[in-house]
């Protein structure tokens, strides 16, 4: 799971078009380099598009604007990968060229 921060978004916005194209190119290159192990995933639209529904408490669901957790980090996308173990996943993530935090979690089978 890829995690963006406010700072990362600001840095990205501050870039020139050429710099941004270069950053995007690096990400595309990473996906190409790891294509053999990537089995799925998506980039999510920015957090301002998020709507959260909470169903706790038994009453009507509460619908709110924004991501489920207000915080400095928001999930910006995910990739499903097929690797032998955590070390292989860690080695992949070490070369990830974009957002500053990546969470690795196994998929339930």
């Amino acid at each position: 799971m890829f995690m963006d921060t406010e700072q990362f978004a600001k840095d990205l916005a501050a870039m020139t078009d050429a710099e941004r194209a270069q950053a995007v190119g690096k990400v595309e290159q990473w996906f190409a380099d790891n294509a053999g192990r990537i089995t799925g995933g998506s980039k999510l639209a920015p957090p301002h598009t998020a709507t959260t529904v909470r169903m706790e408490g038994g009453g009507d669901p509460v619908i709110t604007d924004g991501p489920f957790m207000e915080g400095k980090e928001v999930v910006s996308g995910f990739a499903e990968i097929d690797v032998a173990d955590l070390d292989e996943a860690l080695a992949m993530v070490r070369t990830w060229p974009a957002c500053p935090t990546v969470e690795i979690r196994p998929v339930e089978r």
Binding site: A84, A91, R105
Partner: peptide
């Protein structure tokens, strides 16, 4: 067990 932490000596780079 669940996060797939391997049982081996890490690769030379790590």
């Amino acid at each position: 067990a669940e996060a797939g932490i391997p049982y081996r000596v890490p690769a030379a780079g790590e």
